[in-house]
Amino acid sequence: MSTDTADTTGPASPAGRPLLELRGLRKEFGGRRTNVAVDDVSLDVHEGETLALVGESGCGKTTLTRLLLGLLEPTAGSVSFGGQDLATLTAAELRGTRRQMQVVLQDPYSSMNPRMRITDIVAEPLVTHDPEARGRRARARTRQRVGELLEAVGLDAGIQDRYPHEFSGGQRQRISIARALALHPRMLVLDEPTSALDVSVQATVLDLLADLQQRLGLTYVFVSHNLAVVAQVADRVAVMSRGRLVEVGETAAVLRTPRHPYTRQLFDAVPVLDPRRGRRAAARASSPTGEAGR
């Protein structure tokens, strides 16, 4: 990768090898005219950290997250989770690995069947992966587990018999998070989880995610366009452009002194009240230390 970047593998993990390892990952689409969506991506994600993946629309973020979840097969390269190369796993082994990595999507309503009650929506991963959660005899036990999950995300366990349209956007996103937690995953891929929410609701969802990460030891891959959110939640940030990683580093360092021209261009596009303040002011406005108000 011929770019001026920080080390894509990040700092040494105190627990040994990373939870997620991407090596030389490439994904091509098309026939005669090949479209390279992901090109030579190598990246580590360590247990318990939040890695933010940023870049403009069409840069390859969505394709990369599908690759790391095992939903797409790479054209070249490898994805390893917990030390296991996904390409070498049997169908049964891959099924077990997928329990450990779940996804929360941008629009929670579109990810829910409007004809299903909340209890069935949240229990869907349990029913799919755990034979003991199926059948009438398991119904009471499953409802109890769903109630616990709903309470864990700040909702009342008594909402189980209601439908998705009866809830606000923020409540639906909490329901999506509860569903993602059903199988006790080690990692969550959060695909723009707050971009469809009002600013005040965004803050409560971000607080919830931070609390869950601390209590459950979760690892997050956080896809976002919002640099202010990235500054608040991410330990490290990976910047994508045209399918490649152009810069990876500690969030504060990348926001303060971006090395790659594309990263600087991305930050320059952040709206500020006074355009003369430029990129440095935009980065300060995104800083969790609140330097913009000084």
Rank of each mutant, 00 (worst) to 15 (best):
V103R: 05
S110Y: 15
L245V: 14
R242E: 12
L212T: 01
S2W: 03
T142G: 00
A231E: 12
E192D: 02
G290S: 08
D161S: 08
Y109Q: 10
G48T: 09
T88F: 00
P261K: 12
G249M: 12
Q173L: 06
G70H: 10
S111V: 13
L212V: 00
G55Q: 10
L149Y: 09
S286P: 06
L20S: 03
R259I: 00
D107Y: 13
V54F: 09
L69I: 02
P271N: 13
R215G: 02
M187A: 15
R137M: 02
G31H: 14
V221R: 01
T289W: 03
F81H: 10
G30H: 09
G55L: 14
V230F: 13
V229S: 05
L197Q: 09
Y163D: 00
V103T: 15
T194G: 07
F81N: 02
D107L: 06
R277K: 12
A210F: 01
D156Q: 09
S287W: 04
R139C: 00
S287G: 10
V248R: 10
E28D: 15
H260Y: 04
K61M: 11
S78A: 15
V239N: 10
L150V: 02
P275E: 01
Q144A: 11
V246C: 04
G147L: 08
E166K: 07
D85Q: 08
D268C: 01
Q106S: 06
E56P: 06
T90F: 09
R17F: 02
L149R: 04
S168C: 07
L245K: 08
L86S: 07
T63H: 09
F222Y: 13
A76L: 04
T90M: 06
T251M: 12
Q232C: 00
L72K: 05
H46M: 01
V41H: 14
G16Q: 13
G243A: 11
T9V: 01
E21T: 15
L126H: 04
V104R: 02
A133F: 08
R23L: 06
Q265D: 13
D4R: 14
T194R: 10
Q102L: 09
G290H: 07
R33M: 01
D107G: 08
V79P: 13
T119L: 01
A252K: 12
T3A: 11
G30F: 05
L126K: 03
S286Y: 08
L19R: 05
A91G: 10
R66W: 05
T3N: 13
R276M: 02
V254N: 14
A178R: 04
Q106W: 12
R236S: 11
V45N: 06
L149T: 05
L181N: 07
